[in-house]
């Protein structure tokens, strides 16, 4: 098994999960309660990576962040680096691609919290933000944890979008899945089999954990 690739995949999965906790939770909190006209469209956009092939998303991301795009030029002027073929680049791709895997379980967990409890807290003089941390979060954390575990497991095996956005640079963008592809191309079946087997076992454990967390939500 290619250990530098495994290490890189773990870094990518950890960073993706952390970023999605920070931006996915507010997004889910908003979508779980807000009522507005274009809500179905926002929900569809969040769910889009579920059905879109990663090559399509990767293609647009590459075009949008490349040195010929306004965003790419702005990023280069600001940081001196380029997004495509860098770790930050594949992280961006991975975050966008994993958005539904985090946000959808978050929404389900937050929406399951009885609205009357939240209103009871407001009527006791507690602000909206404080209510989120003292009522909503303590009652929905198992579902949120389930979403995080799912996101981590899913982004650990990231392949298509990494290949489009990052190519195949050892130690920078060659993740575990990319290294399996390389090994197969080089007819190095033993190494590919080790990595593939590891991903199967790891994913199974993570999905079982996620399912156990989800069950806690129902029991509570």
């Amino acid at each position: 098994m290619n250990f530098p690739a495994l290490w890189l995949s773990l870094q990518l999965a950890t960073c993706t999960t952390a970023v999605l906790l920070l931006i996915g939770l507010p997004l889910a909190a908003w979508l779980a309660r807000a009522k507005f006209r274009g809500k179905f469209l926002v929900e569809a956009i969040v769910a889009l990576p579920l059905v879109l092939p990663p090559t399509v998303l990767g293609f647009y991301l590459l075009m949008a962040t490349g040195p010929h795009s306004a965003f790419g030029r702005g990023y280069e002027a600001l940081t001196g680096g380029r997004l495509p073929f860098s770790f930050v680049g594949i992280l961006l791709g991975s975050v966008i691609y994993n958005l539904p895997f985090a946000v959808r379980p978050f929404i389900a967990a937050l929406a399951a919290v009885d609205q009357r409890l939240i209103e009871a807290s407001w009527c006791l003089g507690v602000s909206r933000g404080e209510t989120f941390f003292r009522v909503t979060l303590p009652l929905s954390w198992p579902g949120i944890l389930a979403g995080l575990v799912l996101t981590f497991a899913h982004s650990l095996g990231e392949f298509g979008i990494v290949l489009m956005m990052g190519g195949n640079i050892p130690g920078v963008t060659r993740t575990l899945s990319v290294s399996i592809y390389d090994d197969v191309q080089a007819q190095n079946y033993h190494s590919a089999g080790m990595a593939a087997g590891f991903l199967v076992v790891f994913s199974l454990v993570m999905l079982s954990l996620s399912s156990l967390c989800g069950r806690r939500v129902l029991a509570a």
Binding site: D114, R116, L117, E119, A120, S121, W122, G125, V126, L139
Partner: peptide
């Protein structure tokens, strides 16, 4: 806002916080 009105609202099914004890519920506000 409800926070500024200073009313006490008693909900139909009591709406006690299920993760907090009786004392913590009473002290909540």
């Amino acid at each position: 806002s409800p926070q500024l009105r200073g009313v006490g609202y008693l909900f139909q099914e009591h709406a006690l916080f299920p993760h907090l004890t009786v004392a913590q519920n009473i002290a909540f506000g």
